[in-house]
Amino acid sequence: MLNQQIINHAKSCGNKESCGFVLKKNNNFEYFPCRNIALNPYDSFEISTEDWLRAEEIGEVVALVHSHPDDFPILSKTDQLIQQKTALDWWLVHSNSVYQFRLMLPLLGRDFKHGTTDCYTLFRDAYHLSGINLPDFYRKYNWWSEGKNYYLENMPENGFYKVSANEITEGDVIIICLGSSVPNHAAIYVGEQMILHHCPNRKSKRDIYNGFWLKYTHSIWRHKEWQSYGFMGISNNLAINLK
């Protein structure tokens, strides 16, 4: 019902971007449609202060909603920058579907904490931005030394298949043996011989994919539902510059 209300509002706006809020009221969720007051509502949206205050009077704002009638179902660079400022989940309407993008830390510059903000978290969050949702799970530190093989066990189960090194393309996942014979580190290939990853005791960053990282690569994987436009969701996040 909630999603259909959101979709119906987007349809009523035609080629203009719709916008609104998801509100929580008395343990129920409801949609609060807003008027798009942007100067160019066909390519952007803006919610008035009056609509925002009125929504907050009705219930707790838990998500901001807008549509991409003529664009891809991913958050733009501007969307992701403003999402950080609003500190809300953002929902996106596209082609009669609603895509939910949770609030997350920017992909670059994260502090490392195993099981919370580690290489799998970065991999999972990057894929979330591309429109593919992966499960989270508890992982004890040093699992690779205790008979576990999480990456090789979980990649096929979550829709990934192996590709050869000469097939690598933006968005592919590189599984690496980091100080272990068991593959225990994930990186995202971001093009131009660069990877995005998060090593212990370091901030998440881009690195050149050669030398050590290339030597200790175990395998390269691609998701069966991967779309080339999905990488735009990742690259848009890499481009945001938070002050």
Rank of each mutant, 00 (worst) to 15 (best):
L134P: 00
E146C: 04
P200K: 09
E153G: 02
Y229V: 12
K203T: 06
N210D: 15
H197R: 03
K16Y: 02
N237Y: 06
P135M: 15
H94D: 05
G179M: 15
E157R: 08
H66N: 14
Q100T: 11
W226E: 07
A87I: 12
R54H: 13
L105E: 07
F212R: 09
L122W: 03
P106W: 12
V62I: 03
H197M: 03
P73Y: 12
E146Y: 11
Y216C: 03
S76H: 05
Q80I: 09
L75N: 07
E57T: 03
Y120T: 07
I195K: 07
A186K: 14
K11L: 09
S235M: 11
I176G: 09
M155L: 07
D207G: 08
A10G: 08
H68R: 15
I37A: 11
H185N: 06
L105P: 00
V93G: 08
R102Q: 11
P106D: 05
G171F: 02
I74E: 01
D79P: 00
F101P: 02
E57S: 11
L238R: 05
L214C: 07
D118W: 02
Y31W: 09
L134S: 10
A126V: 07
A10S: 06
R54G: 05
F137P: 00
E46G: 00
G20W: 09
N3C: 00
E60K: 05
E170P: 06
